[in-house]
Amino acid sequence: MNLLKTFKHKIKNKLINFFFEALKQEVQNIFLTEPMIVGPKERLHISENVKKNNFLVNTNSGEVYVNDYVFFGKNVCLITGTHDFTKFEDERRKTSPKEGRDIVIEKGVWIATNATIIGPCIIGKNAVVAAGSVVTKNVEPFTVVGGVPAKIIKRIQQKEDE
């Protein structure tokens, strides 16, 4: 009888550990693959073929479009929202445009870890935004940009069919 009790206890502990690990993995997947959205959710438009890591999207002042084959490093920020720096105190905090600061990320773009994209801007097809960069204007297709503010580092050789 003692052996049966021990066996039941071991199985119970293994099942608890199995379900705990599965739940932990699922929670991590949600936090590491779903964007945190500040502002209207319907202003975020993400294609199906996007590799999403944890990223923050502010849609308070515009739409955000993320096209096919885009992939993000960790902790990327896409920011449409801004405030009027000519205002002061509570007025500055409460004053922001409601539209006109859209971000468009075209097909095949790689935005590396800790990069920040500040709208309005378009990140061109197959461009690369280096880790830690701050993009404040349009990025040409097939270019690598980096720095604060981001500047062109190099051009990417295009395939014949591009």
Rank of each mutant, 00 (worst) to 15 (best):
P120D: 15
L44C: 05
N60L: 09
K107S: 06
P40L: 12
K137H: 04
G62A: 13
G62F: 12
Y69I: 02
V109D: 06
V70T: 13
R92C: 06
K51A: 12
V76K: 05
I105F: 06
I118C: 02
C77M: 05
E89P: 09
V70Y: 09
S133H: 12
E106T: 08
T113D: 09
T116C: 10
K51V: 09
M36C: 11
P97C: 01
T86M: 15
V128N: 13
S96K: 06
V70S: 05
S47R: 04
V128A: 10
Y65I: 06
C121P: 08
N75R: 06
I122P: 10
E89C: 10
E26Y: 02
V57I: 09
K52S: 07
I111H: 04
S96Q: 11
T59N: 05
L56A: 01
C121K: 07
E26A: 11
P35S: 14
T86C: 13
I30S: 08
G73S: 08
K107V: 12
I37P: 00
K125M: 14
K125D: 07
N60H: 10
V128W: 09
A112P: 00
W110R: 08
T86H: 14
T82N: 12
V104P: 00
V50P: 00
C121T: 04
P35G: 07
C121Q: 13
N58Q: 05
S133M: 15
P120G: 12
T86G: 14
H83C: 02
S133D: 11
V76T: 03
V76F: 08
E63W: 09
V38R: 01
K51R: 06
P97N: 05
K137M: 01
N54Q: 08
G73K: 01
A112R: 04
N49E: 13
V135K: 07
M36I: 08
T86V: 07
F31N: 13
E106W: 09
I30L: 14
A130N: 13
V76I: 01
V64W: 05
E89S: 14
I105V: 11
E89H: 06
D68L: 15
I111D: 03
E48Q: 12
L56Y: 08
K94W: 02
V134R: 12
V66I: 13
N53V: 05
R92S: 09
K41M: 00
L56N: 03
K52Q: 13
F72V: 12
D68I: 09
G73E: 07
L44M: 06
K41D: 03
K98W: 11
N58G: 09
I118E: 03
I123D: 11
K125E: 15
K94A: 13
S61N: 04
V64L: 04
A115D: 01
A131V: 04
R93V: 07
V50H: 02
T136D: 15
K137E: 02
T82M: 07
R101K: 14
G39D: 10
I122C: 09
P40E: 13
R92Y: 10
